[in-house]
């Protein structure tokens, strides 16, 4: 395989809060059109790692590279501006806003001029609905619906579609399937695959091995803030990963379900 330049790379990143070391020499890379699965139990340092990637925390030591160039994020907005988008467990964070309104928070399309510049809600609704339908969620067809009325999977899909629409290059998914049922989870996994197909680099954080195996190209297991294992698809069996991780008993059943949908 030719040496591609990873979209995002961490080189021996340490992060400590005072005397407490949370991340220890973490090295990771993720290429365009690939899914990197970050596995780890609760407390392994996953959230700190996400926040470091998203520009919330600055690494204590080590480097962050984008396209081979070293970068230092000034904050979450800077990281977002460079194309790093984070989607959290519950997707949309504005449950009482309409789909169109929440899709465009901070970047509202306007019509008119000067002091009469108006928020173009019709256009916002249309674009939002189209963006999410392009991902195969055809059940969302009215941009005036409230985000809080969508199912967990639909909300995740909407959040992912939003990130893609606004030109994200790296998509960080923080436990997107943790709170979902089997069917909903397979919807989200299908969307992860679609995102990958569109050439985004995806970092998929989970503690469910079966979900990771369904979409991952590359796997890293995080234990107590350090990378305990780093391998590519097919290099380890499900049982071996399960050994590294806890859980995963209903894997076979779920995997069959996901396969059926892709």
């Amino acid at each position: 395989m030719s040496e591609k330049i990873p979209v995002l790379e961490l080189q021996r990143v340490d992060k400590s809060f005072g005397p407490i070391e949370v991340l220890n020499e973490v090295s990771l890379k993720v290429n365009a059109g690939e899914v990197l699965c970050l596995l780890g139990d609760n407390g392994a340092g996953k959230s700190t790692l996400i926040k470091t990637l998203a520009g919330v925390h600055k690494p204590t030591r080590g480097k962050i590279l984008m396209d081979g160039q070293e970068v230092a994020f000034a904050g979450p907005r800077d990281a977002a501006g460079r194309g790093i988008a984070t989607v959290h467990q519950f997707g949309g964070t504005f449950p009482l806003m309409s789909i169109g309104r929440s899709f465009f928070v901070g970047v509202e399309p306007t019509k008119g001029w000067g002091p009469f510049k108006r928020f173009d809600r019709k256009k916002a609704n249309e674009i939002a609905v189209k963006a999410v339908q392009d991902f195969g969620i055809t059940r969302i067809d009215d941009g005036e619906r409230l985000v809080g009325g969508l199912s967990g999977g639909e909300r995740q899909s909407l959040a992912i579609a939003r990130a893609v629409h606004f030109g994200a290059r790296v998509l960080i998914l923080d436990e997107p399937t943790a709170a979902l049922g089997v069917k909903q989870a397979s919807h989200v996994l299908r969307i992860v695959n679609e995102t990958k197909r569109r050439g985004l680099a995806v970092i998929f954080i989970t503690h469910q091995v079966m979900h990771a195996m369904a979409v991952g190209d590359h796997f890293a297991v995080l234990i107590r803030g350090a990378i305990a294992a780093d391998f590519r698809k097919g290099e380890k069996t499900r049982e071996e990963i399960t050994d590294l991780m806890a859980g995963g008993e209903t894997m076979a059943q779920l995997e069959a379900n996901v396969e059926g949908n892709t």
Partner: peptide
């Protein structure tokens, strides 16, 4: 109802942290 500021006010009331991260 009709301006971006209105959308920002709703977003702020929904989740201040996310609203700030969205550039409001």
């Amino acid at each position: 109802q009709e301006t971006r500021f209105g959308n920002w006010i709703y977003a702020m009331g929904g989740d201040k942290e996310s609203a700030r991260n969205a550039g409001i």
